[in-house]
Simulated assay, not measured.
Amino acid sequence: MCIGIPGRVVALDPRQPQHVWAEVCGARREINIALVCQAGQPREALLGSWVLIHVGFAMSRLDEREAAEMLAALQAMGEVESDVVLFMTGEGNDEIR
């Protein structure tokens, strides 16, 4: 299954200018923001923003309402789809917490 999950940008990566740290279901994950950066806008402007994350990339920006709705839908799916639970909890991943 290929799904994206909402995450909130919580920190900048000082080593890589196109990477930030996002909080996803209580875990912090390093993500690439190249696809959501706006020309002329500093990456600091993304701090606190919600983004849709798929395979380590922020695919689009979300507002807080959209993020909450998507997380609720994913939690509901987790009740019937075990792979969604694994994705949301990060089990089997090597993320830094």
Rank of each mutant, 00 (worst) to 15 (best):
R28T: 13
W21K: 13
P42W: 02
C25S: 15
I31A: 02
L86F: 14
G92Y: 07
G78P: 01
L47H: 02
R29A: 15
L71H: 10
P17K: 14
M77Y: 10
E81N: 12
R28V: 09
L35M: 06
A39C: 05
G90S: 13
L71G: 06
H19D: 13
E64I: 02
I33N: 00
S60N: 09
D83W: 12
N32W: 03
E69W: 09
L52T: 01
A22N: 09
E79S: 11
A22G: 08
Q75M: 13
M70G: 00
A58M: 04
L47N: 02
S49I: 00
A72Q: 15
G56T: 00
A72S: 14
S49Y: 03
R28P: 00
A73G: 10
A22F: 08
V51F: 02
M77S: 13
R65M: 12
R61P: 03
R29Y: 14
E30G: 12
N32Q: 06
E69K: 10
G56V: 01
V85I: 07
L52H: 05
R61S: 00
E79H: 13
V55Q: 10
A39L: 04
E79T: 11
H19E: 14
G48R: 02
Q75R: 14
A67W: 01
A68R: 04
S49V: 05
A76R: 15
V80C: 14
A39S: 09
E91W: 14
A27V: 12
S82C: 11
G92A: 06
G92L: 07
E81T: 10
V84E: 11
A68E: 03
P17C: 10
E44P: 01
L35Q: 06
A67T: 05
E81V: 11
L52R: 00
L71S: 07
N32I: 04
C37K: 03
Q18F: 06
A27F: 09
V55R: 12
S82K: 11
A34V: 05
A34K: 07
E91D: 12
D83F: 11
D83Q: 12
C25Q: 14
A68M: 05
A72I: 07
L47E: 02
H54P: 06
A22I: 06
A58V: 02
V20E: 08
E91V: 09
M70D: 07
D63R: 00
N32A: 06
L47I: 04
E79N: 13
F57L: 09
A73N: 08
V20T: 11
N93G: 13
V51Y: 05
A22S: 09
A76S: 14
A45I: 04
D63A: 00
E81I: 08
D83C: 13
I33W: 00
E30H: 13
L86K: 15
Q41R: 06
A45C: 03
P17H: 11
E69R: 15
F57N: 12
A22M: 09
V24G: 09
G56P: 03
A58W: 02
C25E: 15
G78L: 05
V55W: 05
R61H: 02
P42N: 00
A22E: 04
G56S: 04
L74E: 08
G78W: 01
H54I: 01
L74P: 11
